[in-house]
Amino acid sequence: MDQVFTISIFTENSIGLLNRITTIFTKRHLSIESLNTSESEVHGVYRFTIVVKTDEELVQKIVKQIEKQVEVIQAVYHIDEETVFQEIALYKVSTEKASENNLVERLIRDNNARILSMEQDFMIVEKTGHKEETEELLDFLRPYGILEFVRSGRVSVIKPSNELHERIINF
């Protein structure tokens, strides 16, 4: 049965490694839902966070094939319940209707979002949360006129213990 898996990959910093990793998904004809990369807690070790929707058997195979790449230190996968994860969304909203009353501001507050910038004819709103939450705010704001919307890839840390950290620093 298909479900959401977050794949965390710890790597060396080398040119083209992103390409090498994504070809493994291409080979299996699997679409990547989201992808993020940044340096990890260990200097020089990079962390990829890739979200896919598939069955566990396939994600297991893919993770093993990723892990066997020479410059990959470790690859693991988790289901949502095993991680804490967030995405950040930015909304550029027209102020034409929004300035008519203060409903929008209340909406933004109630959704734990915030206004980053207020311009003459638009404002920029930021919200951090799960996809459903940023999606929900998008639906709320849509009647006011969305000029731009962008959501980041998922970033995720693993709940149980510090086992993963230990493995990364001791590899």
Binding site: G16, R20, V70
Partner: peptide, 9 residues
């Protein structure tokens, strides 16, 4: 890339 064990420029 997909047909090498490793490559480098």
């Amino acid at each position: 890339m997909p047909v090498t064990k490793w490559n480098i420029q």
